[in-house]
Amino acid sequence: MFSVPLPLASGEREEILKIVGDILKNHAANRENLIPILQQVQAKLGYLPGPAMEKIAAASGVPAVDLYGLATFYNQFRLHPPGKHRVNVCMGTACYMAGGRIALDSFERRLKIKEGETTPDRNFSLERVACVGCCTMAPVVVVDDKVEGRVTPTRVDGILLECGASNGAAGEAPAAENTPAGREQAEGAQRS
């Protein structure tokens, strides 16, 4: 029933705590500010990791479970890190009627995750979105920035192959380039 948080890569926890600490310096940590604070954390980290919620809880005196309550109440918040490839399955009315649910189920089965989750290697994250505006192509899936139309289960396999799916078997460590620290390193290397 419940989705389990992904394990953190080495050094990730420290980075999370530093970023949250910086955000907390600019906000009074009271109840009214909790949502803006969570939004900023997600803007920086791409999701809301447990240590971030715990740190905000400690600073505000609000129980950590209430931060978790906010994070699970609003659709805008993610509890898993965004994957290297972001799969968004459209569940707008047209796509839903045309088999969007079947496409989503296929991704869930292939990637062995549920919607809202990310594979342990952080290669793929899976989400549902409301209408992306090209209903004539229903059911639609947006992978990274590419729009795929008429997505059948066979096409799901094709999409994953094109992304070079390594299937993200459970327990597999996140590939270094898929963690925030790793990405920063890679970007730094590119810049220099």
Binding site: P63, A64, V65, D66, Y68, G69, T72, F73
Partner: peptide, 9 residues
Amino acid sequence: VGAIGFTRR
């Protein structure tokens, strides 16, 4: 204590 709360919707 603050151990339990409502989550999800």
